[in-house]
Computed example of a mutant assay.
Amino acid sequence: MRGGVAMKAGFLGRLAAACAALALGATGLAPMSTADTVSNGVAYSIVPDLVAGNSPNGLGEWTVDYEKLAGGDPVVAGAINRILDDEATGQVWLYAASASKTSPWTFHTRGRLLFRPLTVSALFAGQYNAIELPNMPIDTVATRVFDSRSGIQIVWDNLFTDKQAGLARLSDLSAKILPATYPTPPLGGWAEYGASLAPLERNFKFWIPADGGIELHFPDRQFGRGAHVITIPWSAVSDLIAPAFAAITS
């Protein structure tokens, strides 16, 4: 099992059942499916996987309950699954490394696969909670986007013909769409968060392609408490999309 954090197979089912209600309630994601789905004309099955464990000092406990691909094109499925595994274990180490050393804590997240004609995307949503500390819990988010034709990741560098122009467009449009989507501003008002909207890659790390456009996920604390989600219409960025990914706007 990977990274020393996955439980033995006999324990996985029991732990998954125990944490399913908690994880689903925390993230709002639909239950995982094993049904076949078609991407780029190729049929895949969606299968569950789990990374779970406890910190050496006994204070922390984590579960990353996520979906992977089976069947279909083995090259594409293998490339995608390797990155999904890396993402799952990477999230554990991210939160375990910065976790409280004095208070009990938990980290639970769910990863769901989403399919469009050109893409397979993964959206991880969950919660970190250091139970005895103030300002808890913290909502967590992570995303990955893959080209379903090849399994490569789609990132700002290859999605946009000019990465910096693309980030500038996302920045400008987010500054307009966020206040319209969230009429109640964060503490201090939207003007306090100009640095969090600057056209820098770290400000727009998490996204997935959706029918309506680029769905941006802003993590808890980027704009005050709570996660924020907005959609940048495809029509507003279509002139910047690289020809190889033009079909992403369909």
Rank of each mutant, 00 (worst) to 15 (best):
L240H: 06
I241T: 09
I241W: 03
A236Y: 11
H228Y: 09
I241A: 02
F206C: 06
K205M: 05
R202M: 11
F204E: 00
Q222W: 07
E215Y: 08
G224C: 06
G224F: 09
H217E: 06
F204R: 02
W234F: 08
I230T: 07
A210R: 05
P209A: 12
D211S: 08
H217S: 06
V237M: 05
A242P: 07
R221K: 01
F218Y: 12
V237G: 04
R225T: 13
P209S: 08
A236R: 15
L240C: 09
T231H: 10
K205G: 00
D211E: 12
R202F: 07
E215I: 03
R202V: 08
K205Q: 10
P219C: 12
Q222E: 14
D211A: 14
R221F: 12
D239I: 07
T231V: 15
I241N: 08
D211R: 05
F223S: 09
I241M: 08
D220L: 09
D220E: 13
W207F: 15
Q222Y: 00
R202Q: 14
A210F: 12
N203A: 05
R225N: 14
A210T: 10
H228R: 15
P233Q: 14
F223Y: 13
D220H: 07
F204C: 00
F218P: 00
F206H: 08
I208V: 15
F223I: 08
D220G: 04
I230A: 09
G226C: 04
I241C: 08
P219Y: 02
R221G: 06
I214K: 03
A236V: 04
R225F: 14
G226P: 00
T231G: 01
E215M: 12
F206Q: 05
F204G: 01
F223G: 01
H217L: 11
W207Y: 12
I232T: 05
I208M: 05
G212L: 09
W207D: 00
R225K: 07
K205Y: 09
K205H: 12
D220K: 00
H217P: 01
A236S: 14
G224L: 12
P209K: 03
W207N: 04
G212V: 06
P219F: 03
S238R: 15
P209L: 08
N203H: 09
F204Q: 02
E215H: 12
D239N: 15
W234Y: 14
W207G: 01
A227L: 13
F218S: 10
P209I: 12
H228N: 07
S238A: 08
G212F: 13
H228K: 15
G213H: 13
W207Q: 01
I208K: 02
